[in-house]
Amino acid sequence: MSIEVALYDGRPQGGRRGGPAMLHLSTCHGGGLAEALAEHARPSDHRLGRIDPYGDTLFNEQDAGAAFEEATALLARCTSEAQRAAVRDLRNLLAHCAATPGSWLCLLGD
């Protein structure tokens, strides 16, 4: 299982032409991110807890700002370097999304 993370400059349109531009795609930590979320995400992690490891989950800039705090707490619970690297990457993309008006973060489960 793996979760990739894509940052867009607008809401993704499901593959339609003329949709928003992808600003960044993170594929190198997908396994570590899926593992960290499965092992350490708590039900109280409102936004991180709703990430679907088998489907797509979208965060707008407001969701991303709130999820950043949850990811910071998740980072403290990680038990391996692969998990920590994945959550640090997620935190960076969450921060970028939160700071970019109109942007969306898409977590792509497999």
Rank of each mutant, 00 (worst) to 15 (best):
M1K: 08
L7A: 00
D9I: 02
D9N: 09
G10Y: 06
G10A: 12
P12C: 12
Q13L: 08
Q13F: 02
Q13D: 04
G14N: 12
R16S: 07
G18F: 02
G18A: 01
G18D: 09
G19N: 11
G19I: 05
G19E: 01
A21C: 07
M22N: 07
L23C: 02
H24P: 02
H24C: 10
L25P: 01
L25S: 04
L25T: 08
L25K: 15
S26G: 04
S26P: 00
T27P: 00
T27H: 05
C28N: 12
C28G: 03
H29V: 01
G31H: 05
G32A: 13
G32K: 10
E35F: 09
E35M: 10
E35P: 00
L37D: 05
A38Q: 13
E39Y: 13
H40K: 15
A41Y: 12
R42H: 15
R42Y: 10
R42N: 05
S44I: 11
D45K: 15
D45F: 11
H46K: 15
R47Q: 14
L48R: 06
G49I: 11
R50A: 15
R50H: 09
D52N: 09
D52E: 05
D52S: 15
P53C: 10
P53D: 10
Y54L: 09
Y54A: 08
T57S: 13
L58F: 14
F59S: 10
F59C: 12
N60A: 14
N60F: 03
E61W: 12
E61N: 11
Q62F: 02
D63A: 14
D63L: 09
D63F: 06
A64H: 12
A66I: 06
A67Q: 07
A67E: 06
A67H: 09
E69I: 10
E69T: 05
E69L: 14
E70D: 06
A71D: 01
T72S: 13
A73F: 04
L74C: 14
A76M: 15
R77G: 05
R77I: 09
C78H: 11
C78P: 02
S80E: 00
E81V: 13
Q83F: 15
Q83C: 08
Q83W: 11
R84N: 09
A85M: 13
A86V: 03
A86F: 03
A86H: 04
A86Q: 10
R88Q: 02
L90G: 03
R91V: 01
N92L: 08
N92Q: 10
L93I: 10
L93R: 03
L93A: 01
L93Q: 01
H96D: 12
C97Y: 05
C97P: 04
C97T: 03
C97S: 15
A98D: 03
A98M: 14
A99I: 02
A99W: 12
T100L: 08
G102T: 02
G102A: 12
W104D: 00
L105I: 03
C106Q: 01
C106V: 04
C106M: 13
L107Q: 00
G109Y: 01
D110E: 14
D110P: 08
D110G: 15
